[in-house]
Nucleic acid binder design. Structure first.
Lengths: 211, 211
DNA sequence: GTCTATACGCTGATAGAC
DNA sequence: GTCTATCAGCGTATAGAC
């Protein structure tokens, strides 16, 4: 995710400084609790520049929203290309999400911990954006190919990804103390095979290895 | 949920009018996009009364938060008392959540569709409130009793309830067109038994019956 | 293209009459 | 206890200099 890789410390372009500052403030205080002056201060830019570049606070939010979802989309595309079966694609996405929660806190918080309709009302709902649509398509493919049981696709998608999303939110809320990748294997197993003991004659070995 | 049952149309107590109006506005526009004047107008009360009763906008939010979580807590208690096994308790809670999404939209939206830290910062996180703690305890009990596999309790709870929460959010976002109870059986099956076909020799019959 | 100083509107909150 | 009129502060946005 380009603008977050601060390899070049000083000569960072101005719009990146503004966006990173805004993202940080939005995530930590909430969009409505952040004033343009604070963004200006943290980005070390003047107000004029902000209005020149983004046309206002909502412009920044919009740009952030599009930018981040675009990068997520590319991420999903990569997964789809590099992995064959829907099952593997789903698992890889879950793995990436767990990892990114640790390495890109702000981005994950922005995506999974904010109510975007409150500050970017004219943008499509996050569940209607490309990456999320593609993820649902993966699930549908999994049902077509027979890997997943043929149930309602909303239920299937919610079951497969609801667990990760929930655990990400708990981690962002600092309820969970260990990095998420710690739980990856357990999570995958529970998500795909269920939580009941009766199904897990074979899986029990894996579990005891994890604990 | 008392103050939402408007059996007596006119002589409704003033604090209830304020709370219902506020809940409605908060849910539909977002806390920060609602002014005290709007609440006053919709509740058909004067500003003075609002400040007398709740001390301000944040007071209303706080009262709402506590009130709703209190009612959710009682709901969970009822389930715990009326159902024996953790598995049944979990399923019943999921059933109730699906139902309430249709009958108490505002409440569910307030609980599952808002970032409370942005407007009630001094209140405990929603995942640290009694009902949610009790739900996690149910999951832990299920692992002790051997009904659920003994895995990390965060993972277990996220897996079991992440699906419903996700599907509730999708329904609140109007992505899902059918009432949630429609999907209850499918959701329960997918959550507890997983989504993979290999586990579901017996379950396949149920599925084809649902579709 | 970048900055400073300023204006305008809105919102939360109060004081005081009834 | 309830209301009306009013205030003070903040936050967005602009105009104009450099």
């Amino acid at each position: 995710m380009p603008y977050l890789k601060r390899e070049a410390p000083s000569p960072e372009p101005i719009d990146c400084r503004i966006l990173t500052a805004a993202l940080d403030l939005f995530v930590n205080a909430g969009y409505h609790n952040v004033s343009v002056h604070e963004i200006q201060k943290q980005a070390d830019v003047s107000i004029g520049s902000i209005y020149k570049h983004f046309g206002g606070k909502d412009g920044i939010a919009k740009a952030l929203y599009k930018h981040i979802l675009n990068e997520m989309d590319e991420l999903v595309d990569d997964v789809i290309q590099e992995h064959q079966s829907p099952t593997k694609q789903c698992k890889e996405i879950i793995r990436l999400l767990c990892g990114y929660t640790e390495t890109h806190y702000n981005i994950m918080a922005f995506v999974f911990h904010a109510k975007h309709t409150e500050f970017v009302p004219d943008e499509p709902l996050i569940c209607n954006t490309l990456p999320f649509i593609k993820i649902r398509d993966i699930v549908k493919n999994g049902m077509k190919s027979g890997e997943f049981r043929k149930i309602d696709s909303w239920v299937a998608a919610s079951t497969i990804f609801g667990g990760v999303i929930r655990i990400i939110q708990l981690r962002l809320d600092n309820m969970i103390k260990e990095p998420l990748p710690t739980y990856y294997e357990t999570l995958i197993d529970a998500t795909f095979n269920g939580v009941l003991t009766k199904n897990t004659a074979a899986a029990d070995d894996k579990i005891s290895a994890v604990l």
